[in-house]
């Protein structure tokens, strides 16, 4: 009897947790498909419409530009950060570099630096260089946040690969670079891919830099949300539609690599 009760209590709790997590997301998705009138009515009985999406992508909101900005900034950041970080992570993982501990501490310590500290001087520098409101500016600043994080994460993955195969390859006649190319990269590929997606998510969702460094041309999606606060009040149905556009690509990525994703969260941290 007690057993059965516990069994049901456990299921009930699981359902409750799922509801708490899913409800805000579901509500946003629903609102995105509501007409303005329905959006303010709390009603679940409404005729779905795509009008909100049409509206956000047309003048004056032009969400399409922001989608492009977000895609370019996040992709370029990943394409620069991940290869550089992979090489550094390999060196940290496999060599007893002189001063390695200090260098690695230097990398980790950047994680303790609040973004506001970095963005102030960047704002001043970019202003002088005329780089404010450009994608390049965003990419540079995002690299600051993302690179150390990715080094740390990929190092965790490489640490977990036994060195045997690499040594075997060196004895079989491979140079160190050949070993990295032939053995380490293929074996670490799932980990590197996971790190790349983490990196993409961080950049895609980044808000502070974009808020400060962009005005019109290089605005990314999260900051675009703020535009829907107008003198006429908050336009919730449009915000929700934009929210869906921000969320869907990221959710798909996260779910695609679901297994590695959860492992990635634990891998670096537990050590």
């Amino acid at each position: 009897m007690k057993r059965i009760l516990l069994w049901w209590a456990e299921r009930a709790l699981l359902v409750l947790v799922s509801v708490i997590v899913l409800f805000p997301i579901a509500w946003m998705f629903l609102t995105a498909f509501k007409s303005p009138r329905d959006a303010y009515s709390l009603s679940l009985n409404f005729t779905p419409t795509f009008n909100n999406f049409v509206t956000v992508f047309s003048h004056p909101w032009n969400l399409g530009d922001m989608v492009l900005n977000s895609v370019v900034v996040a992709s370029v950041t990943v394409l620069i950060a991940v290869p550089c970080a992979s090489l550094a992570a390999y060196s940290f993982s496999r060599f007893r570099v002189r001063g390695r501990k200090f260098l690695f501490f230097l990398v980790l310590s950047t994680q303790f630096i609040p973004a506001v500290v970095i963005v102030l001087p960047f704002f001043l520098m970019f202003r002088q260089l005329g780089l404010l409101d450009t994608r390049i500016a965003l990419i540079i600043v995002n690299l600051a946040i993302v690179t150390p994080f990715v080094i740390w994460m990929i190092k965790g993955y490489i640490d977990a690969i036994p060195t045997d195969s690499e040594e075997a390859a060196m004895i079989d006649g491979a140079s160190r670079l050949r070993v990295i190319w032939d053995i380490v990269l293929p074996v670490a590929a799932p980990g590197i891919l996971t790190s790349a997606i983490f990196c993409f998510i961080l950049t895609w969702n980044e808000f502070l830099f974009s808020l400060i460094l962009t005005r019109r041309d290089a605005v990314t999606l999260p900051v675009g949300l703020v535009n829907f606060r107008t003198e006429r009040g908050d336009l919730w149905e449009l915000m929700s539609a934009a929210g869906v556009m921000i969320t869907v690509p990221i959710f798909i990525m996260a779910l695609l690599i679901q297994k590695h994703f959860t492992r990635g969260m634990t891998a670096g941290a537990v050590k």
Binding site: V21, P24, V226, M239, S240, G243, I250, A254, L255
Partner: peptide, 28 residues
């Protein structure tokens, strides 16, 4: 099965933009 499902669901909040979370709660 329920555990696995909940675990998958739990991935979502982290992937969601914090700015958007603020907006959603403000709305709710």
């Amino acid at each position: 099965r329920m555990h696995t499902f909940t675990r998958v669901v739990l991935i979502l909040p982290f992937a969601m933009s914090p700015a958007l979370i603020g907006v959603s709660y403000r709305f709710m």
